[in-house]
Amino acid sequence: MKYTYYILLFYSISIFAQESVEAKFIDKTDLKAETLISVDNFGTQYYLKNDVIHKKTNVKTITYNNLQLGTLQSANAFNPLKINLFYKDFNTVIILDNRLAEIFKIDFNTLSPYKNVSHISTGHDNTIWVFNQDLQKLELFDYKTRTTRAQTVPVQSAVLDLTSNYNSCWLLTEDFLYVYNYFGSLLKKVKNNGYTALVESNENIILKKDHALFFMKRNKDEILPIITPNLLINQFFVTNETLYIYNSEILQQFQLKIN
């Protein structure tokens, strides 16, 4: 009987330990930017200021701007050799290399059939994921051949955010979080309980709800709260197991303790 009690106690403690993810404070840095894009493993910072993208290393800072395309809607530096910039007002994507030199321009207004794009994210090879507003479909678009390699079935609710890696894509809508492979096949969908933004790291997903962050481990459906100080979260992302939170003035780093 006593043996059974200890087994149950150990099992209860194990379950309790899985109910949240701890974020241990590492460091903080002053940073004045409108939007922080990412920080890589070498400490290189990518950020936006006055619609100009900055790449800041320990040695120097280089910039890129294309003011004729208006406001920069989003930027993605998942692949630092092919950085994606999305100018939604002009329905155009610019691809930059690691020196922030323009290597490709995709004007969706000139394509046939026309694509009305609301969100983009990095794909494998010479592809990007684009959400076609008119069709309500996610498409894997090859920007060199100007062809669609894969597409999903239409979604039924408004799109909030989109992220991807070379193998998978995560589409957050008001109703569900959808997960697709690079063939456009639906792997799973999870009910959205108020999440408004997401990022990906090593197939793990971090979600934002109000001023709190939540963690969904790869191949799992359970969503756990991340225990952080009460912070204003303007931007957030994860590199490996380092969580970055930015509040327009200070960039803070936390080590995620993932079991």
Rank of each mutant, 00 (worst) to 15 (best):
I53H: 01
P154Y: 03
Y3K: 14
E203F: 08
L96T: 09
S168L: 14
F141L: 13
Y114T: 01
I226H: 13
K137D: 05
F42T: 15
M1Y: 12
I226S: 12
Q68P: 04
T35D: 10
T163M: 03
T228Y: 07
G43S: 06
I7A: 09
N109I: 11
L160H: 07
E241F: 06
S20R: 11
S121G: 04
K220W: 11
I128H: 00
L198F: 01
I205T: 00
F10E: 14
E139I: 02
N109R: 11
Y3M: 13
F131M: 04
N50T: 11
I95C: 04
N259E: 10
I62F: 05
K220G: 08
E200N: 15
N41K: 12
I206R: 04
N126Q: 09
N84I: 15
I106F: 08
T242D: 10
V199K: 13
T71G: 02
D97Q: 02
Y114C: 00
L67T: 06
Q45L: 14
Y195L: 07
L251M: 10
A33F: 08
Y64I: 01
N50H: 08
V39D: 11
L243F: 02
V117G: 05
T4H: 13
V155D: 02
D40C: 11
N41W: 04
Y180D: 11
L138F: 09
K24I: 10
Y195S: 06
F10H: 12
F141G: 13
N167H: 13
N91L: 09
G194C: 09
L251V: 12
S38T: 15
K56Q: 12
L48A: 09
N79C: 09
F214W: 10
I233L: 12
V155I: 14
I258L: 03
N240K: 15
